[in-house]
């Protein structure tokens, strides 16, 4: 197996009284495509968010490239995420006031890329996901599936080393979901990127090299 990229040990996380993760340990190799699945409420999304550094676990450790991720400061983690991770969530991820193209270009603009160059790269990614005609639309005008494609384009725009996707095909039908997934996984393979995706769709899970099945906050 390739070198270990993520290593989690005894990760716990609770929301108020509900325990989402109750001690999860795992390793993910660089370039691996991993699906996290399990019944709803099993802690899938929480695990993904913790690995992506979007939430901080209450106990346990998460290491990325051999260095602790969970005890990095908020700004550090954000910058790491911006440069090395791409994230696609289920909803609520596009800035409502910016057009699709501006949304895709956002991570580049935050990295102080040239505006024109950022837009060019953004349009390229939108084209890849068959969403070039949506470039100047505002998120409010997009359907769930279209917004998902825009979000996927944004996740790839920086050429990330790891792609995190939470139910990436949730808002799409079978064929549309297949296209999105194929593009996403194809792009990941081109960049030798790791993919970690949460799904309750077995057909999506089957596209991964490996499945991590959660039940009640632990790996089954």
């Amino acid at each position: 197996m390739s070198e270990i990229q993520f290593e989690a040990r005894g990760v716990r996380k609770a929301y108020g009284r509900t325990e989402a993760l109750r001690g999860v340990s795992l390793t993910i190799g660089a370039g691996e495509v991993v699906a996290i699945s399990g019944p709803s409420g099993s802690g899938k999304s929480t695990l993904l968010l913790a690995l992506a550094g979007l939430i901080r676990p209450e106990a346990g450790e998460i290491a990325y490239d051999g260095a602790r991720l969970d005890d990095l400061g908020e700004a550090h983690r954000t910058r790491l995420r911006r440069r090395q991770f791409g994230v696609v969530l289920q909803f609520g991820q596009l800035v409502p006031e910016l057009t699709a193209a501006q949304n895709v270009a956002l991570p580049l603009l935050l990295e102080r890329h040239d505006r024109a160059a950022a837009r060019r790269l953004a349009l390229g990614q939108l084209e890849r996901f068959g969403a070039l005609d949506l470039a100047d639309a505002l998120p409010g005008e997009l359907s769930g599936g279209e917004a998902q494609r825009v979000a996927a384009a944004r996740a790839l725009v920086t050429g990330p080393r790891v792609i995190f996707a939470d139910e990436p095909t949730g808002a799409l039908d079978t064929v549309g979901g297949e296209h999105l997934l194929k593009t996403l996984l194809g792009a990941a393979r081109d960049n030798d990127a790791t993919v970690v995706m949460v799904t309750h769709d077995n057909r999506v899970a089957a596209r991964a090299d490996r499945e991590i099945f959660l039940r009640d906050g632990v790996i089954a």
Binding site: L54, E74, T78, R79, V95, P96, N103, L110, E111
Partner: peptide, 19 residues
């Protein structure tokens, strides 16, 4: 709530708290 959504979306897109 719209503002929170926007700021959260910005954070998700990779903006640091300071930004």
């Amino acid at each position: 709530s719209a503002r929170e959504r926007r700021l959260a979306a910005l954070r998700l897109a990779g903006a640091t708290p300071a930004e």
